[in-house]
C-alpha cells in the first residue's frame, strides 16, 4: 500500500529530516512511528500525502509513484488518504456535522451522500448525539473523534495520524487508540506517529523507530523501546 525506497529529505543544508529511509507497509497493516522529537516522524507522514517531496528516493502509494505525479492529480491522491493531527484542525465556526460534511462537500459529493454518510461515521466514532455542537463545546477526546470521523468519512485506503493522542489524558487517548484499531480492522492501512509509550506497548503492532532521520528499528509486534 505504501512503499518508500531510499528516501532522503532535508529542509536546508544543515537539517536532514530523513535519510535513506526504506520500508513497505502492506494493505490493512498498522504501523507506529516512534522516535524522539525532531527525528523525522511528521516529515515521513507528510511525504506520504505529497505535502513534501523528497530530494532522493521514491514514494509509492496505492501502486503509484507519487513524486512523479503531476500537481493536478494530488487532490485525487489525497481523497484516498485521511489525516489526523494532534491539534485536530477542526473549523471552529462549523458544527460537528458540518465539519465532517465539509470534507465531502469540497470534493463535490452530492447532498444525499453527505446526509447518509456523515451520521453513519459519527455513529461509528460514538458522537451521534452531538452533531449540532461546535468544537468548543466538546472535550479534547470528542474533538479528536470528530477529526477521525472527518478523515474516515470518505472511506480512505490509508489513515495518517500524527500524535493523535498527544493532547489527551491516558484514558481518553486509549479510547482514541481503540477507535483507530477498529478502523484498521475494516481494512484501512494506518500509520501513526506517537510519543505514547503506553499505547505502543499495549497494542503490540509493528514499530518503526527513527533517530535523527534514520530508521534504527523496524519490528513486527514491537514495543516502544
Amino acid at each position: 500500500m505504501i512503499k518508500l525506497e531510499n528516501v532522503t529529505k532535508s529542509y536546508s543544508t544543515e537539517v536532514t529530516a530523513l535519510q535513506d529511509a526504506s520500508f513497505d507497509v502492506a494493505k490493512a497493516e498498522f504501523v507506529f512511528l516512534v522516535g524522539p522529537s525532531g527525528s523525522g516522524k511528521s516529515t515521513l507522514l507528510r511525504l506520504m500525502n505529497r505535502q513534501e517531496k523528497p530530494e532522493k528516493g521514491e514514494v509509492w502509494v496505492a501502486g503509484r509513484n507519487i513524486n512523479d505525479m503531476p500537481d493536478a492529480k494530488v487532490p485525487h491522491l489525497r481523497r484516498n488518504i485521511g489525516n489526523i493531527f494532534q491539534d485536530y484542525k477542526l473549523l471552529a465556526n462549523k458544527t460537528v456535522f458540518e465539519n465532517v460534511a465539509f470534507a465531502l462537500e469540497v470534493i463535490g459529493r452530492p447532498k444525499h451522500v453527505i446526509r447518509q454518510q456523515v451520521p453513519a461515521v459519527l455513529d461509528l466514532v460514538g458522537l451521534s448525539g452531538k452533531q449540532e455542537r461546535f468544537p468548543h463545546q466538546l472535550s479534547g477526546g470528542e474533538q479528536q473523534r470528530v477529526s477521525i470521523a472527518r478523515a474516515f468519512v470518505n472511506r480512505p485506503l490509508i489513515l495518517l495520524a500524527d500524535e493523535p493522542t498527544g493532547n489527551l489524558d491516558p484514558t481518553t487517548g486509549e479510547g482514541i487508540m481503540r477507535l483507530l484499531d477498529r478502523i484498521n480492522k475494516t481494512g484501512t492501512t494506518v500509520v501513526m506517529a506517537t510519543h505514547d509509550q503506553r499505547i505502543v506497548n499495549m497494542m503490540r503492532k509493528r514499530v518503526i523507530q527513527l533517530d535523527r532521520g534514520i530508521i534504527v528499528r523496524d519490528q513486527a509486534r514491537g514495543v516502544y523501546e
Partner: peptide, 8 residues
C-alpha cells in the same frame, strides 16, 4: 483542510 481532504 480543503487541501488535505483533496479539494482541487
Amino acid at each position: 483542510v480543503m487541501k488535505l481532504v483533496g479539494a482541487t
